[in-house]
Design a protein around this nucleic acid. Structure first.
Lengths: 335, 335
DNA sequence: GTTAGCACTAAAAAAAGAAGAGTGCTAACC
DNA sequence: GGTTAGCACTCTTCTTTTTTTAGTGCTAAC
């Protein structure tokens, strides 16, 4: 892979990213300072190496997945942000009052807005959160709410209707007892502890322990199910990208964007790299997209931000944006 | 509008709903028991009345908005549910443990699933909820969470980082004081009361009251903003309807479905009818859809369910489904 | 009032033709 | 040996033409 080939591949990709049209040899003469025939010769070489491809025998070239991969690993040079991009982002970080999680979701919105891609943030799963407290709130002696709160500040609530003839004071007293036994337990161990440690003890002391036991059991079950901590911004942006100009693509991608299960996709990030780019089928989302993932960690919070765009993403710009943003967020920690 | 015309219009609409093709005179001969020529004569009459239209001079007829309107007001006969539909819905109502709000969202999912339309439920705005309590949870002497709960069981929370040198015990003590003054206040009056009744009193008693005051102020501000209480099910179903077979329609509707502002659309329901059908531009959502809205009210909870589908909706079936469902939900109350 | 018959219309599908963008290859050039 | 001009060739795309088809409106007879 000599220098001219590298320059040519870079040029083809960057032109294609802008125009979304196959790139012909003529249009590259000026940039590469040689004739179209020379470029054609080089193109044949790049095609044999698998970095570019043709739609049909007499069409211009488009980058292959391998080509994009080579580009992000060897050719692109994330530059400083443009003034415009910078300006938008700074308004967030000047606002010191924002909590980390609010700042992250705000950033997402702005990235989706600036790039016209879809962005997702997945907070770290709360499985290693510790139970801080469970509050039972009495609404009308008949309905109660159980509010579960962890040490990292995740709060969930669930409403229950008590069976007739239940003494509400008894319920609250029992729940306080259970509460004390559970505080500090990792959230995913609560069910277990409830069953094998708490139940035997309260069963002895309290005659009608079952109602309260079930409330705790259900509340934690729901907690683990609901506890996704995921935010999506700019869902339909992706649908508007020009390559998705047929109804099948749009419907398929729209379905995937609605399906909350794409959180699995976000959470998987190989190795311990901070930033990783997944192109096409590697994306684990759709063969026709690229996903760029970036981990962040600030004080108690950590998570992964993912940008979902077309394969011909503005790689340099998105990487710069993400890095700038995460630097700032992690900076909030030190302050 | 004689009987034969009514039968013809009904037949045209029901055929079109099934086939999504303009309906020709030949295909109706058997049903109407007359020749195609007779049907053509009647069609001319219906067209002059504005109930059906043609795409071009020699095409079959499709129902107009006026035609659909006449149909839902005069012709359709919501029938009993089919065994299949009934079966799916019953699994929910047999589950007595479900709270009303859970049952409603579960129903939405099933309706979206059965009909392939999009369904939305908008719970009544909590403005007339009364404040039940505000809990301050201390996470690590530096970060706290304020949990706001109303008498109807709506819970929201917000995290705060306390300024350096704040005495957390003082904060909790002050908040309990404020709490007592606010309990029972309608949620939308809280800010006012906080400013004009609570502030003067605590300002006298507590030297550094501002921190706590701001926490309450922000928490309620967020409460009112977040407090949408809206659930959507089957967003992309609508996109899959065969009439939306061009990218513009799909993108436009996808945008509208993503935009949370369609809650305004749901909340507007004229008069005090229980069920109302809005066709085409009346829908306040998109000219190419029909929205069927149904109010429900069960115990403390009330709200509106809306089904968004193509104009050639299965009106009879959807109306039956909604009525059956809401009857059951309201039945939960009495039990 | 109903219906058979027929001329007529517009869309949709298929076929044919013309233009354009770009390639691959050869042979000449520096 | 790398570079380039030249040219035949390929495939797409756009336009035009032709054919087919589904359905109408109207007239005249039943």
């Amino acid at each position: 892979m000599d220098e001219r080939k590298k320059a040519l591949l870079k040029e083809i990709i960057e032109t294609y990213v802008k125009t979304v049209r196959p790139v012909g040899s003529n249009s590259l003469c000026k940039k590469l300072k040689c004739s179209s025939a020379t470029i054609r010769n080089e193109m044949v070489a790049l095609e044999n190496m698998g970095y570019i491809e043709k739609n049909h025998i007499s069409s211009g070239r488009i980058p292959s997945e391998l080509g994009y991969k080579y580009y992000v690993e060897n050719l692109m040079q994330p530059k400083d942000l443009t003034g415009e991009d910078m300006l938008k982002l700074q308004t967030i970080f000047n606002n010191n009052e924002l909590e980390v999680s609010d700042a992250v979701t705000k950033c997402l919105e702005i990235i989706s807005d600036l790039t016209n891609y879809t962005s997702v943030v997945l907070g770290k799963n709360s499985n290693d959160n510790l139970l801080k407290q469970v509050n039972i709130i009495d609404l009308d002696n008949h309905k109660i709410i159980a509010v579960v709160c962890t040490d990292k500040g995740i709060v969930e609530n669930k409403q229950f209707t008590l069976p007739e003839n239940t003494n509400i004071d008894e319920v609250i007293k029992t729940s306080e007892m259970i509460n004390k036994m559970l505080i500090g337990t990792p959230i995913n161990k609560v069910s277990e502890k409830l069953e094998f440690e708490v139940k035997p003890i309260i069963a002895k002391k309290i005659k009608d322990y079952n109602t309260v036991y079930n409330i705790f059991y259900d509340a934690f079950h729901d907690f683990l199910v609901h506890n996704t901590n995921i935010h999506v911004s700019g869902r339909v942006n992706l649908l508007k990208e020009p390559e998705y100009d047929n109804t099948e693509d749009i419907k398929r991608i729209a379905s995937k964007l609605e399906d909350e299960s794409f959180q699995d996709m976000v959470s998987k990030i190989d190795g311990n790299e901070e930033l990783k780019i997944y192109i096409g089928e590697e994306s684990n989302f759709d063969d026709n997209v690229t996903v760029i993932k970036r981990k962040y960690k600030s004080g108690g919070e950590e998570g992964t931000i993912a940008i979902i765009g077309p394969k011909r993403m503005e790689y340099e710009r998105v990487v710069s944006l993400l890095n700038y943003m995460v630097d700032k967020i992690e900076g909030k920690d030190g302050k």
